[in-house]
């Protein structure tokens, strides 16, 4: 773990892998909940956790050392898996099948057979970067992004899978769609897929 400063009131923890990011994120969130840590934002990402709005950055290092950032996350496995009903009829399904040396059914089998985890959110409110796909199934972004990807589109890029919570431009490979509501202001928390959540895609129809 490496501690980097991001201005006078934020700390960026650099971690070795996904699991270490989850462990640090859980530990820091718990510390904030029980009042041992004051922070306005705790933002996990691919290899880092950003803690913003901290009064004494040194305190975070002490916290992680005393509680240990490598303790297994209590949340992992204990929260129920979120199921995303999906129609696999995306425009890039055949392209992805070709990249994976399989057919449409093969893509669906791999995607529905993978236990995903929300690594982090970003890009748009409720957009979750889902990890879990085996390395041989990582695909490049499309050569040029689409100007409009419809809401609910299930897509792949790099090591991630994701679902577009709103219609937006996007360069990911579109393999399907869902009617699941990814971001709902009437629900607390508003995002269906929060960091650390377990996710499975289930084929519909």
């Amino acid at each position: 773990m490496r501690v980097r400063r991001a201005g006078p009131s934020a700390v960026l923890l650099e971690l070795d892998d996904d699991d270490a990011v989850f462990a640090a994120y859980d530990l820091l969130s718990a510390a904030r909940a029980d009042g041992t840590l004051t922070a306005s934002e705790i933002v996990p990402a691919a290899r880092t956790v950003l803690i913003d709005g901290v009064t004494s950055p040194d305190r975070i290092t002490t916290l992680l050392k005393t509680r240990g950032p490598s303790t297994p996350s209590p949340a992992a496995g204990s929260s129920p898996t979120i199921k995303i009903p999906t129609w696999y009829d995306g425009e890039d399904l055949d392209d992805v099948a070709a990249l994976w040396n399989t057919d449409r059914a093969g893509v669906i089998a791999v995607h529905t057979g993978t236990e995903f985890r929300v690594a982090f959110c970003g890009f748009a409110p409720g957009f979750a970067y889902l990890t879990g796909l085996d390395q041989r199934f990582h695909v490049p972004r499309r050569p040029s992004p689409r100007t409009r990807v419809p809401v609910g589109t299930v897509a792949l890029a790099g090591l991630y899978s994701g679902v577009y919570p709103t219609a937006s431009p996007g360069g990911w490979q579109c393999i399907g769609r869902t009617q699941a509501v990814l971001f709902d202001l009437e629900v607390d928390p508003p995002a269906l897929l929060a960091p650390g959540a377990s996710v499975r895609f289930v084929e519909v129809g």
Binding site: P44, L50, P125, P190
Partner: peptide, 11 residues
């Protein structure tokens, strides 16, 4: 609206 950055919500 601070406090929602982990869900992708800007301040």
């Amino acid at each position: 609206r601070p406090g929602f950055a982990h869900l992708g919500v800007p301040r």
